[in-house]
């Protein structure tokens, strides 16, 4: 199979206006991924599926990921004047990164037996722009998995034939897999509490006076 850079170049040629970004993966698995903008996601995915060299006809896995607002710090070597001498000093630079939600698709090919090609779509932020393109019209296997991402993360999929909750009941209001979800407090009885569960339990009992 061709490398990710070659796929990126060909996809940008086929789909006008598409700007794909390669997200590097530092782990030994070396599974790098392609980030595509929401407007071009469907066209790029169609190219990946129908191109005769790639023929990625099998969408194996669709997952949602939640990234909260974070402060990224990186160590940067900066030339500074210290005591009259110009030296290279390591400085910690902090950048604020707004939170977003992500949908990750793992694509394989059953006809040519290669893969994976990993495709990612990102939402604008975590509160109001939470919609991405649904790839269910291209790969039917995404149907239930995108419903699950909608149920647990709250990401809306344009073009999904039947977008409703799949694992939680219909009247449920929250999106439980988000990092800032507050779960209901039913920890009244904990026979062997540990760590933070112990604190949740203690809140249910009145404070007991310690006898001297």
């Amino acid at each position: 199979m061709e490398t990710l850079e070659q796929i990126k170049t060909r996809a940008e040629r086929v789909v006008p206006g598409a700007q794909l970004t390669i997200i590097k993966n530092d782990s030994p698995s070396a599974q790098h991924s392609l980030l595509v903008a929401v407007e071009h996601a469907f066209a790029v995915a169609k190219f990946l599926r129908d191109d005769p060299a790639l023929r990625l006809d099998y969408c194996s896995n669709v997952s949602g990921v939640d990234f909260l607002d974070a402060e990224l710090s990186e160590k940067v070597k900066v030339k500074k004047v210290v005591d009259g001498v110009e030296k290279e000093v390591e400085e910690v630079r902090k950048t604020k990164r707004a939170g977003y939600l992500e949908v990750v698709y793992h694509l394989y090919s059953m006809s040519l037996k290669h893969g994976p090609v990993i495709l990612r779509q990102r939402t604008g932020n975590r509160s109001d722009t939470v919609a991405v393109m649904s790839l269910t019209p291209l790969w039917r296997s995404a149907e239930f998995q995108e419903r699950e991402v909608f149920d647990l993360y709250g990401i809306h999929f344009y073009g999904h034939p039947d977008l409703r909750r799949i694992l939680m009941w219909d009247g449920f209001k929250d999106h439980p897999m988000r990092k800032d979800y507050q779960e209901p407090d039913d920890y009244e009885y904990e026979p062997t509490p540990h760590d933070d569960v112990c604190d949740k339990t203690k809140a249910h009992y009145p404070k007991q006076e310690v006898k001297a």
């Binding site: 009941w169 219909d170 009247g171 449920f172 209001k173 929250d174 209901p184 039913d186």
Partner: peptide, 11 residues
């Protein structure tokens, strides 16, 4: 009954 965040009543 199915509530918005939990079952109603919880127990």
């Amino acid at each position: 009954l199915y509530g918005e965040h939990d079952l109603v009543p919880a127990k």
